[in-house]
């Protein structure tokens, strides 16, 4: 039995017929073909599926699409453009904040809310802030640097050194 829901994703309104058991991440990836949002663990542990729901970061593998009826959702496709990257995207590129890139969309969506609430986080606040996002490649140091880079840029300050850290 399906029902119609209406969600605004990256500013565009969609009305879709969904089964109540359809997960939000499946709506995003399979019905709307926005495959930037990844499915890592499917158990709300890894954060690869993080999106913003009404501005709050959330794990879309643990939310039903019907729960998002009426909500405004931002996915990685709604952040920056290839020509004009968001400071977070630029930071991940400049600071080598990724190896395989699988966790990156979730990391960026989580960092969006983190910097929105706390424009000048300490390193410790960044590390706790991304505690719900797992990266199996980088060891996190360059991810933290990427977020610091973006924070500085968003504050209008000079960006820190982008020399990658090898540990």
């Amino acid at each position: 039995m399906t029902r119609d829901i209406t969600v605004t994703i990256n500013g565009e309104q969609h009305t879709v017929a969904v089964e109540p058991r359809l997960l939000l991440v499946h709506l995003i990836r399979e019905k709307l073909n926005l495959t930037g949002t990844h499915i890592g663990c499917d158990t709300s542990s890894c954060g690869a599926c993080t999106v913003l729901i009404n501005g709050k970061s959330a794990k879309s593998c643990t939310i039903l699409a019907v729960q998002a009826d009426g909500a405004s959702i931002t996915t990685i496709e709604g952040v920056g453009t290839p020509e004009a990257l968001h400071p977070l995207q630029e930071g991940f590129r400049e600071c080598h904040g990724l190896h395989c890139g699988f966790c990156t969309p979730g990391m960026i969506m989580r960092a969006m809310e983190l910097l929105e609430k706390n424009p000048n986080p300490t390193e410790e606040e960044i590390r706790w802030g991304i505690a719900g996002n797992l990266c199996r490649c980088t060891g996190y140091n360059n991810i933290v640097k990427a977020i610091q880079y973006a924070a500085a840029k968003l504050r209008g300050e000079e960006t820190p050194s982008t020399e990658p850290e090898f540990v």
């Binding site: 709300s44 970061s57 959330a58 939310i63 989580r110 719900g132």
Partner: peptide, 9 residues
């Protein structure tokens, strides 16, 4: 509890 995304929900 959990992590920031979990605490949001």
């Amino acid at each position: 509890i959990g992590d920031p995304q979990v605490r949001n929900r």
